[in-house]
Design a protein around this nucleic acid. Structure first.
Lengths: 227, 227
DNA sequence: TGATAATGTGAGTTTTTGCTCATATCATAC
DNA sequence: GTATGATATGAGCAAAAACTCACATTATCA
């Protein structure tokens, strides 16, 4: 997509549908100085979000901290949501990549190796910028209406599902949709909560090991029937 | 316990809290009509939050839907946060009670019975008002500055910890702090995500059973050491 | 019945904040 | 050099939303 079409699209949407918010970038930075401007805006957004919280993150405040005028901000981001969404996508990608590459590398390894490594990678991903991740997690649900931020996360789950499929005869649960949901949700929440609320549990490797045990025992353990 | 008494309790705690600026003390509802007013305000708040989202939940809008004037709202709630906090506390209590009573009833039962029942209770708790729970979950972190909303949840975790302590010789993991964290976080997130994002998984009892398997296999399963 | 307290009202004040636009400065191509 | 597009500026607009307050209505009770 050319720069022009981006610009025209944004312009069209602003004129035609003033009620519906668009997260399409208004203009793409071309010269070096504008790239610096955009970068400064995103960095300032992250700083304010993590250090002062979402409520203090007004666009005027962000522009001030970035050292640019409020007008410049709106030249590259059509609205506040687009700004936050851009930051979120960048951060999400940073996290996802850590997990995805690990899973790709170990696709042919046995479960006993893959799961512990996956847990470790997930912890590392959540440790990239825990505070930012927390703020974004709290605020994104309201923003991500037209957004496909979680697209990448879905990709990981699909990859994980493929891995389970390949090892289907070595695991107990056979409803893979359910299994992927349970394991994915469990790992995600444990990493998230551990990093945010219980950093003291991260000092030694005990947490990672126990989470691995949790997942492994589930996959290769026995059933506990209820009557 | 009636709705009214619930609300009064929540309200009492809100106005008892230390406030920064000297504001005119809000009145406690005394006559029946004012109790009806307070109830209507809280009900309207819940409705707007669930049906239209947090952004639409302005105090004027809430008062309008409650059929009372905006002035009445501010006679019983010093500010918007107090209103949302009162509603959240009420909802939280409703959920907590389901789990807590179950855990109390089954305190002397064996693990194989307790865990599945606990999972079921937790699912039921999350099903009370999933949409409201989701909205509150998204917005509360920004509100709960001076709040101790999660106090009740901590109570449950303590109770669960006591239960594990009692059954210490029957479970594998011996670091109970870690175990309580892992199991609590896992159950909470699975119930939450299942009810909110994957209601299709709730049709049959398979999810509950698999979650129970996850927890049981962890508690009484073997260790998977890594070298 | 009348006095007093409790409750209800809503127009209006205040503050915040997202965002625009007319204008100015800088970079680049010819 | 100058023309043209890219970039930067920030005062100020418009809308929304929290909250007040002077006054009206209703309940309680001697």
């Amino acid at each position: 997509m050319s720069k022009n079409s981006h610009y025209q699209l944004a312009f069209y949407q602003v004129i035609q549908m003033p009620r519906k918010i668009s997260t399409t970038p208004r203009k793409l930075p071309q010269q070096d100085r504008s790239k610096i401007t955009v970068d400064a805006i995103l960095t300032a957004t992250a700083r304010i979000l993590t250090e002062e919280g979402y409520d203090k993150a007004s666009t005027n405040r962000i522009a001030e901290m970035a050292g640019v005028s409020i007008g410049s901000l709106y030249q590259y981001f059509p609205n506040k949501e687009a700004l936050v969404a851009a930051l979120a996508e960048h951060h999400e990608n940073e996290m996802i990549e850590l997990v995805q590459s690990k899973l790709n590398d170990l696709f042919d390894a046995p479960i006993e190796i893959v799961l512990p490594e996956l847990v470790k990678a997930c912890m590392a991903a959540h440790a990239v910028n825990p505070t930012l991740h927390k703020v974004l997690n709290e605020q994104l649900p309201r923003i991500a209406k037209l957004q496909q931020v979680n697209n990448a996360e879905e990709q990981i789950l699909n990859l994980f599902r493929a891995y389970l499929e390949k090892n289907r005869d070595r695991i107990r649960p056979q409803n893979l949709d359910l299994t992927v949901f349970i394991l994915g949700c469990t790992v995600e929440s444990l990493c998230h909560e551990a990093v945010i609320e219980h950093p003291e549990l991260l000092s030694n490797g005990e947490l990672e090991e126990e989470v691995s045990n949790l997942l492994l025992n589930y996959l290769i353990g026995e059933t506990h029937e209820r009557k």
